[in-house]
Structure formats: structure tokens, C-alpha cells
Write a protein that binds this DNA or RNA. Structure first.
Lengths: 194, 194
DNA sequence: AATAGACTAACGACCGTTAGTTAGTCATTT
DNA sequence: AAATGACTAACTAACGGTCGTTAGTCTATT
């Protein structure tokens, strides 16, 4: 792997663990086996490295959603929804990208708040569009109970994804998969038509 | 308010917004209207201030749970559960304490990870004890569906609290209250006996 | 009532360290 | 010959923290 990609990979894991302010260029350089100033041969600044990683993470999250929806396009709504939820939840297990993404969403560096919010807003609207279309398909298939509004569904969905992403910090993968079953059983029973 | 309490209040809001590494003692001092060395008349170190705030936040979260359970002691299980969930979710709106608490739970400063984990573990076990007793009461009252295990209930409960706490970063209070209704309607339908 | 000592909480000056960044150099590759 | 990517050296700014001093306040003694 070339130096640039190595710097990105190392930056991702360090930013994920220690945050933007808690990570120094010296740490990144040492882990990459080069000296600190050499980083500037590949990135204009610490902020530029961080923002590139942020855009990557956002793009990858969208790609994950698209992949899930496409792969399960022919499956019943229940399976599509379950697969989508599970994929989103396990995004956090992509080595350090999930933690990075979560941290970036919740606590973007105050110093880069303008650029960060632009990335976040764009990502959120891209996800919203896909989610709304997906709900419509479930509704047309009669899979959702009629008294459940779009708003309620979206609220519950986001809430569960956020909650599962949070729990990846607290539990091992196996434990999280057990917990996912609990959450899914409650969620599906809550939204399905009788 | 005396200087010590003022420093705590200001530290809380700055740590919440910028994190531990992103907040400097100079910022805290300036906001409190004193100079940096004067902070050391009240706290041994930056870490000591932060850890005191962490313990306070943890204690306050437990107190909130106890208050909710006590206040609704005579109410039906559904109302008790709803009240508890709502209280936990709106904890984040306690001026900066909710954000501080969430940040502390998810991304404690790596430099203080040992002390932080001790506080977190203690808090989690205190909450678990209360939650398990609460579930038992709901089960005895026949409010929960029999096929729902304790594990599943706890997983879903934590997931929703974490999700709602996360969403407090993204939405205004009014919007969050709308979303809470959606989450609650799905959750309750998912756990209740028929 | 006046004073002496102890304590508190503020301060300016400063310390050692480290942060991100720049400039300039040099060997290797294209 | 040009570009790349590593290096050393060094910069400024800021960090957390220390020290000695001082102004004010409470208490106890005279």
C-alpha cells in the first residue's frame, strides 16, 4: 500500500480512538513509519486529512445502504428491512470506520464545524431519499400497519440505527448480534401489519 | 454562585461542546472571568475538574431514574415505562449535562480511560439493577408479552435510550418530542401483551 | 478596639513541552 | 530534466502547570 493510503488508514484508526484534537500528526507519522513533516507531501493539513476521511466514511455508508437495497431487491419487505437495519448496525464493525463515522456525526471537531456540517447534511439527505422510497414500497406491499405514519417509521428507524451504533462501543460483536435480535423482534412487531 | 461552582458549570458546557482535549484551561478561565492559574486554587488539575463533572453527571442520571420510578410508583406499567423512557431521553436537554454525559460514555478521553471506565462501569451496574427490578414488576403485572425475554427487553430499551440521546444532537426539542411519540408507539406495541 | 497570624483566592511571570506547519535539502524514480 | 517523497532543522503558538506575591477576610489574642 502506498504512503498516502497508509496515512489514511492510520489516521482513520487514530481519529476514531482519540478524536481529532486528541490525535497528533506525530502519532500518525510514527505509526506510518515516516517523519511528521513528510505527511505534508500527501495532505495540505491535518484538517484536510480528516475531512477526506469524513467524506470517505459518508460515501461508504451510502454505498452500504444502496448495496443492501439492491441485493435484497426481490426479497419480501420484512427481509429487506431486517437486512438494511443489520447492515447499518454492523457498519460500526468495519475496523475503525464505524467509530470514526459515529464520532464524526455526533461530535465533529468544533474547529471544522462548517465543513463537517456540510458533509453531514448532504449525507443525511441522501439517506432520507432512499429511506422514503423504501417505505413507500413496503406500504404498497401492505407490509406496514396502516396507522403507522411515515414520520413515526423514520423516527423509529433512525433511533434504532443510532442506538445500535452506540452499542457497538459497549458490546462485542457476538453480544451485539444477540441484542440485535431483541431490537429487531420489538421493532418488527411494532411496525408490521397484523 | 461561587467561583468553584462557576468553573464547574463553565467546564461542563465547554467539555460538552469541544471535548476534553478540545477544551483549554485558558478558555475556562476566561469564561469564568479569572486567569488560568486561579483555577488551581479550586482544582488540582484539568483532569480532576473533568472527573468531578463526570461523577456528577453519572450521579444525576441515576437520580433521574430513581425520581421517575418513585414518582410513578403507583401508575400502571405502561405509564411508568413511558415516563422513564421520556425522562432518560430528555436528560440530554439539561443544559449541557446531557451532551457531556453522552460524550463521556461513548468517547472518554483516552488519557483518563482507566478512571473513566471505573465511573462508567459503576453507573451501568447501578442502572441495570434498577431496570431488572422494574421489568420484574411489569412482568408480574402481566403487562409484558410472555414470549419477550428480559434480554430482549433490556436490549431494546437501551437501544432506544441511546438512539434518542443521539438524536438530541440533531433535532430541536419540539422535533424530538414528535419523534419520541413515533419511537414510543413502535416500542410499546413491540413489548406489550396482547 | 486594635492588632497579629493564618487562610483564601486572585494575579503576573514563567517553565518545559508539544502542537501544526514551513523551508530547504537530497536521493530516487519517471 | 523534472517530479516525487523522504529528510533535518527550525519556527511560532499554545498547551498544562508552577511559583512567588498580594489583597482581602476571618479568628484569636492582647
Amino acid at each position: 500500500m502506498n504512503t498516502r493510503d497508509r496515512l489514511k488508514q492510520i489516521g482513520l484508526s487514530l481519529f476514531a480512538r482519540h478524536g481529532y484534537e486528541g490525535t497528533t500528526l506525530a502519532q500518525i507519522a510514527t505509526a506510518a513509519g515516516i517523519k511528521k513533516p513528510s505527511i505534508y507531501n500527501h495532505f495540505d493539513s491535518k484538517a484536510a486529512l480528516f475531512l477526506e476521511l469524513s467524506r470517505d466514511a459518508d460515501d461508504d455508508m451510502i454505498a452500504l445502504i444502496d448495496a443492501s437495497l439492491a441485493r435484497m431487491a426481490q426479497a419480501p419487505f420484512e427481509q429487506r428491512l431486517r437486512h438494511l437495519l443489520q447492515q447499518c448496525a454492523t457498519f460500526a464493525y468495519r475496523e475503525h470506520q464505524g467509530v470514526f463515522y459515529k464520532r464524526f456525526l455526533l461530535f465533529p471537531p468544533q474547529e471544522l464545524v462548517t465543513e463537517a456540517e456540510a458533509i453531514i447534511d448532504q449525507g443525511e439527505s441522501r439517506i432520507d431519499r432512499r429511506l422514503i422510497a423504501f417505505i413507500q414500497s413496503g406500504r404498497r406491499a401492505g407490509a406496514l400497519r396502516a396507522t403507522l405514519t411515515d414520520d413515526h417509521f423514520i423516527a423509529a428507524f433512525y433511533c434504532i440505527v443510532d442506538g445500535l451504533l452506540s452499542e457497538t462501543f459497549m458490546y462485542e460483536r457476538q453480544e451485539l448480534e444477540r441484542r440485535f435480535e431483541g431490537v429487531w423482534s420489538v421493532f418488527w412487531r411494532g411496525v408490521t401489519a397484523d
